[in-house]
Structure formats: structure tokens, C-alpha cells
Amino acid sequence: MNNKLTLENIQQFDLDEFQEISGENIFACYQCGNCSAGCPAADFMDLAPHEVIRLLQLGQIDEVVKTNTVWICAACVTCRVRCPKGVDLSKIMEAVRQIVLRKKNNYVDLNKIESELREKLPQIALVGNFRKFTL
């Protein structure tokens, strides 16, 4: 077991800033797991959606950033619609993405996408993707 939670590392990131970006109160989550249960992309995620919130509640944003979960989320908002506490997880995922992107770490590179695919894809796919994965 790595990464023991200690008094030194619990809640050691700027939760106010996080709340400002996401507009969401992560402490409303009581970890029922409904978001994970209904997530159509959960199979592809390193962390289940509810684990993202749990880690954030404990201030472990670095753990979240290490995983692919926020980049797998397609903001389909199924979790938000069924969340018993009305937590908008899609906004929380976006806030984590933004925190990474704002450090000039783009997640996708337009130049690396094959031109054949680029031409075939509908604009909304490209624009949507760049909106989420680049700054």
C-alpha cells in the first residue's frame, strides 16, 4: 500500500480554487457510487468516477492527475442526472482537466492526428475534442 494518507497530505491543495473552477461542492458527495455504476466509459478508466471525487475530498489531486479518468470522460452527464446529491461530476472532471491544461500541458496534439481521419471527422468532433483537451 503506497501513498498513505497522513496529516501532512490530507486536503493539501487549494479546494477553494477548485470550487471556483468547477462551481461544485465536492463534499456533497457521499460516495454512493451511482456515477460509476452508470458511467458508459467506466471500463476504460483507471479510477472509477466516484474515486475521483473521493481522492479530491482528501486533497489527493496528484493521484487523480496521474490517471486517465478525466481524459476518458466524455461529459455525457449521465452521472449528473442520476446523482442523488446533485453533484455535477462532469464539471469536476473538467476542473481537473483545466488545472492540467492551464499548466500548458495540452492532452492532444492536432498535428499528431492523421490527416485522413481529420478530414473525415465531423467538425463538432474536432472542435469538441480540442475544447476539452487543449487550452
Partner: peptide, 16 residues
């Protein structure tokens, strides 16, 4: 009917 198709992940996560 209402389950996500994967949306913009088509660009870089085609497997989804």
C-alpha cells in the same frame, strides 16, 4: 437509446 456514443473521444480514443 440514451447511452453515450463516446462523443469527441472519436478523435483520440477510437477504441471507446
Amino acid at each position: 437509446r440514451t447511452e453515450c456514443c463516446g462523443s469527441y473521444q472519436i478523435v483520440n480514443r477510437r477504441e471507446i
